Amino acid sequence: MLEGTLDERFDAALTHFREAMDTARGVGMTEPDPETGEQWDLVHILAHVSEMLEYWLAEVLHVLASESEEPFGRLKRSPERIARIEQRATLTVEELRSEINLRAEATSDLCRLLRPEQLRKKGIHPKFGAMTVEEIVTEFGVDHLHEHAGQLELL
């Protein structure tokens, strides 16, 4: 069982990410992603985190609004994902930080408001299959923020 409530876990991941963002030297590239081969600099990491927070918040809201277990999500190789990252990468680091903070606060607020029955609501992801809202936020929010914080710590 995971420790803490979903909002506590999300906030801890966000704190880890913000600390890594504040201390990142911004030099170099990430290691190649084992699945896609992608390598990112500081701006591309921040661009992805900005767009992914917005994307997954909308996907969680979609799952919550669905009457049944509806399909949701995307894969790493989705052209939409790549285009969203490249579009965001045209912004400055400060603009990206501002977007990240705004989108993370919205996600944190939602996590605090979700009732137990909402956390158990399910959608169908193309890779992972049936996932609850809690699993979606954990996989694509909490764990993802920790993963990208780790990348920033190595730059």
Rank of each mutant, 00 (worst) to 15 (best):
A47I: 06
E94F: 07
L91A: 08
R115W: 05
L119M: 14
E99L: 10
T30S: 11
T107L: 04
E139H: 11
I82G: 07
L61S: 12
I45K: 00
R81Y: 09
M21L: 15
E8Y: 04
E54Y: 14
F128E: 10
M131V: 04
L64M: 14
L113I: 12
D143T: 12
G129N: 09
V93L: 03
R74V: 02
R115G: 09
K76V: 13
T5D: 13
P71W: 02
Q151F: 01
L154R: 15
P126G: 09
A65L: 07
T15Q: 08
H144T: 04
G28A: 00
V133A: 05
F128C: 07
P34C: 10
E105G: 07
V93K: 05
T36V: 07
S68C: 05
L14Q: 03
H44P: 09
E19A: 02
G141N: 04
E134C: 09
E3C: 11
F140I: 12
G129C: 09
Q87M: 12
I124T: 12
A89D: 12
E59M: 03
E105Y: 04
G129I: 06
E3L: 14
F140T: 09
G129H: 05
E117Y: 06
T92M: 04
R25K: 09
D41G: 13
A20H: 00
E3P: 05
A104W: 00
R84L: 01
L113S: 15
K76I: 12
E147P: 01
I124E: 11
V137Q: 02
R9S: 00
E8L: 04
R18H: 11
M1R: 10
S108M: 01
P71M: 02
A89K: 12
W40H: 04
L46K: 08
I100L: 08
L57G: 04
E135C: 02
E69Q: 13
D7E: 14
R115P: 05
M131L: 13
L96Q: 00
R112M: 06
L114V: 01
E94M: 12
Q151N: 02
N101R: 15
A24F: 11
A13L: 01
R115K: 13
S50C: 08
E94H: 10
W40V: 02
Y55E: 07
M131D: 03
F128S: 11
P116H: 11
V63N: 11
T132N: 11
P32Q: 03
D33S: 08
E105K: 06
R18I: 05
E105C: 05
S78Y: 03
Q151I: 00
K76Q: 15
L14V: 04
T23V: 12
G73M: 09
R25L: 06
R18E: 12
Y55H: 10
I45L: 02
P32D: 05
D143G: 14
N101A: 14
H146C: 04
